[in-house]
Computed example of a mutant assay.
Amino acid sequence: MIGLIITVIGLFGIIVNQSKLKQLLSLNIMALGVVLFLIEGGAKVGSAPPLKGGNPVDPIPAVLMLTTLVVDVAVTGLALALIMGGKRK
């Protein structure tokens, strides 16, 4: 539930803001909301840690979302470089 709320806040920020930097930050917030939503959905599969028996939680969604966060950092760095246009202060 909280992931959906954060995603909507990020989407609202993308729509409302005119600044490219603020839109990029809102896009990051939206991406983190999606990651939280998918991890929350993956955690509902089971209740026990893996390899402890019972009904284990599937670790694959968490691993995929960790990979998503790493890619998101790289894309954010590239987008910041493109927004700044190579200008130095």
Rank of each mutant, 00 (worst) to 15 (best):
residue 3 G to E: 01
residue 3 G to H: 02
residue 4 L to E: 06
residue 4 L to Y: 09
residue 5 I to N: 09
residue 6 I to S: 08
residue 7 T to N: 08
residue 7 T to W: 07
residue 9 I to H: 09
residue 10 G to I: 04
residue 10 G to P: 05
residue 10 G to W: 02
residue 13 G to V: 05
residue 14 I to M: 02
residue 15 I to V: 14
residue 16 V to W: 10
residue 16 V to N: 09
residue 17 N to C: 14
residue 17 N to I: 12
residue 19 S to Q: 05
residue 20 K to R: 15
residue 22 K to S: 06
residue 23 Q to F: 01
residue 23 Q to C: 04
residue 23 Q to L: 00
residue 23 Q to H: 06
residue 24 L to R: 03
residue 25 L to V: 02
residue 25 L to W: 00
residue 27 L to H: 04
residue 27 L to F: 11
residue 27 L to R: 02
residue 29 I to P: 00
residue 30 M to Q: 01
residue 31 A to S: 05
residue 31 A to M: 05
residue 32 L to T: 04
residue 34 V to F: 13
residue 34 V to D: 04
residue 36 L to E: 10
residue 37 F to A: 12
residue 37 F to I: 07
residue 37 F to T: 07
residue 38 L to H: 12
residue 39 I to R: 03
residue 40 E to W: 14
residue 41 G to T: 15
residue 42 G to N: 09
residue 44 K to Q: 12
residue 45 V to Y: 11
residue 45 V to W: 13
residue 46 G to N: 01
residue 47 S to Y: 15
residue 47 S to G: 14
residue 49 P to S: 14
residue 50 P to E: 03
residue 52 K to L: 15
residue 54 G to I: 13
residue 54 G to N: 13
residue 54 G to L: 12
residue 58 D to G: 07
residue 59 P to M: 04
residue 61 P to Y: 03
residue 62 A to Y: 12
residue 63 V to W: 07
residue 63 V to F: 07
residue 64 L to S: 10
residue 65 M to A: 06
residue 65 M to F: 03
residue 66 L to F: 13
residue 66 L to W: 04
residue 67 T to R: 10
residue 68 T to H: 04
residue 68 T to C: 01
residue 71 V to C: 11
residue 71 V to N: 14
residue 71 V to F: 11
residue 73 V to W: 05
residue 74 A to W: 00
residue 75 V to L: 08
residue 75 V to Y: 07
residue 76 T to I: 08
residue 76 T to F: 02
residue 76 T to L: 05
residue 77 G to K: 01
residue 77 G to W: 00
residue 77 G to P: 00
residue 79 A to T: 03
residue 79 A to M: 05
residue 81 A to N: 11
residue 81 A to E: 10
residue 82 L to W: 08
residue 83 I to K: 05
residue 83 I to H: 04
residue 85 G to M: 04
residue 88 R to V: 15
residue 88 R to I: 14
residue 88 R to Q: 10
residue 89 K to W: 12
residue 89 K to N: 08
residue 89 K to D: 10
